[in-house]
Nucleic acid binder design. Structure first.
Ligand code: MN
Ligand code: MN
Length: 308
DNA sequence: GGAGCTG
DNA sequence: CAGCTCCAACGCTTC
DNA sequence: GAAGCG
């Protein structure tokens, strides 16, 4: 039994050497202990962004080659020092989400086999008003060129947000695409924020109708990159910055500097559990200033509507 | 991984 | 006791 | 109201 102490909180676990990620592409296997230590050590850069939000867990107690499951409901057996928040569903039922606030919280949840953390776009404290807009960009095809289209789309969104007076930040999803995130003042509900995001996406699609589409029906997209705004709805979530992904090689949903998006050698799984700390040793967290760049949507909406 | 249920 | 099952569907759009 | 989508 290994025991990690975090001030008054302790996290105990066994089977330290259980392999959760098999060796891959010349990199060693990643064990249960590796994952728990990863979350303990990444907490300092992850929690300023992901902390304080309702989380959904994606657990793989037997590793990525066995089946996993999502877990929304914080279980009664979680320690009482893990915060919970009540989230009403539209059907009237209530989900009790866990909220990660400290390194101990991440380490405990990782000890359950949680590989991937998702968060809401709002804080537990103010669950109805998001402080992030997320543009979810996935490649339309599976060839090498497809990710080039994703990079171009991210840069176009950055350009538009800049025109509208909003800051933008970008991360690898660690799977296939990129997320572009705009920090906003949490003062409007999900419906209003999503309407803004949809208008912005439609403007972009109107400017480059051969490259982008907002069509939900796959059949109508015709090889164009789909600008998906549905993540900006109530009770939806996105993979947390610095979360691991349950994919071979243990890729990380890694925040990037914008200059990295212009680099054609970037791949969606460029950053892994094996490289992230060396990377952070050489550069600051690219999202360090994210919360300070929150802006109200009011002015941006005026500018956007003038373009429609 | 942990809890609850069945046999 | 061992073995098996459950852990997420929700929100929104389009047809 | 049902189906599609993520
Ligand atoms: Mn995506
Ligand atoms: Mn198991």
């Amino acid at each position: 039994m290994t025991k990690l102490q975090f001030g008054p909180y302790s996290v105990s676990f066994d089977k330290d050497d259980k392999v959760l990620y098999p060796a891959h592409d010349g990199q060693p296997a990643v064990t249960k202990a590796d994952v728990i230590i990863y979350y303990k050590d990444i907490a300092g850069v992850m929690l300023p962004h992901a902390g304080g939000r309702p989380v959904t867990l994606r657990r793989f107690p037997d590793g990525i080659e066995s089946s996993g499951f999502y877990m929304q409901e914080a279980q009664d057996y979680f320690p009482d020092w893990i915060e919970r928040v009540d989230a009403k569903r539209h059907d009237g039922s209530t989900i009790h989400h866990a909220v990660a606030n400290r390194a101990a919280d991440l380490a405990y949840l990782a000890s359950l086999g949680t590989l991937e953390f998702h968060t809401w776009l709002s804080h537990a404290k103010d669950i109805r008003t998001p402080d992030w807009i997320v543009f979810d960009l996935d490649p339309p095809g599976k060839d090498e060129h497809a990710f080039t289209m994703v990079r171009a789309a991210a840069l176009d969104i950055r350009g538009l947000l800049d025109e509208l007076g909003l800051a933008s930040f970008v991360k690898l999803t660690g799977s296939k695409g990129l997320h572009v995130l705009a920090p906003i003042t949490p003062e409007e509900d999900f419906d209003d924020v999503r309407a803004f995001a949809r208008d912005a996406a439609e403007l972009l699609a109107a400017r480059k109708p051969d490259d982008y589409t907002t069509e939900q029906r796959k059949e109508k997209r015709k090889g164009r990159l789909y600008l998906d705004m549905m993540r900006n709805a109530y009770a939806q979530h996105a993979v947390a910055p610095y979360s691991l992904r349950p994919l071979p090689g243990a890729p990380v949903a890694a925040p990037l500097d914008w200059s990295e998006v212009e680099d054609a050698s970037l791949t969606p799984r460029s950053v892994t559990i094996h490289t992230i700390f060396r990377r952070l040793g050489q550069k600051d967290d690219p999202w360090k200033d994210l919360a300070r760049h929150r802006r109200s949507l009011a002015k941006a909406r005026e500018k956007l509507e003038a373009q429609l």
